[in-house]
Amino acid sequence: MSESTEKKMVRLRSSDGEVFEVEESVAKVAKTLQDMLEEDCADAVIPITCVRAPILTKVIDYCKDQVMISSSSSTTNNPNERTEQERKAWGQKFMEGVDSSTLCELLVASNFLNIEGLLNLGVDKMVSMIQGKYPQEIRDMFNVVNDFTPEEEEEIRNQNAWAFERDPYYKKRSSSK
């Protein structure tokens, strides 16, 4: 593997047929790909068939950034090395403007490719989207079909009634609806 001085490239193909060429180190951020590369069973193009091109672009962006961080911190004690806070801010920016559908795809992709950092980012984002919402808002946001029968819904609402009574903040929200 180390015979060539130039970096080894890996080609990935998304579900809609687009091919991405990335450095091996970048691809290796994804554990699933790393395993494949190490077993040497990925000579041609690796199809990642559950991930669409726009999502894969995003995933690759993330991987590139991870490579940058690890190379700068391992080689030298770089003064530019990012602090915890900066990393958080970066993560927030990365997830900014991601809609729920994309987020779900990102989650599936990072779960499938086994990228822990991205998975955590996605989960955090998901959590912040759910927090403080009403069921109907959650349904709208995530395209969830309300498949309760009216009676079931009534019952489940009663069971969980305690979760809805709360601070003035929530009362204000419900009255404004």
Binding site: S100, S101, C104, E105, L107, V108, N111, L119, V123, D124, M126, V127, I130, Q131, G132, K133, Y134, P135, I138, R139, F142, N143, V144, N146, E153, I156, R157, N160, W162, A163, F164, R166
Partner: peptide
């Protein structure tokens, strides 16, 4: 895509970060 397309393990992971009342609300969805 919706949240229900996610594997249950992932959904579980997400719910793990919620507090009790939010979990109660989610169960009404």
């Amino acid at each position: 895509r919706s949240i229900t397309d996610l594997p249950a393990a992932l959904v579980s992971e997400i719910l793990h970060c919620l507090d009790a009342k939010e979990l109660g609300v989610v169960s009404c969805v």
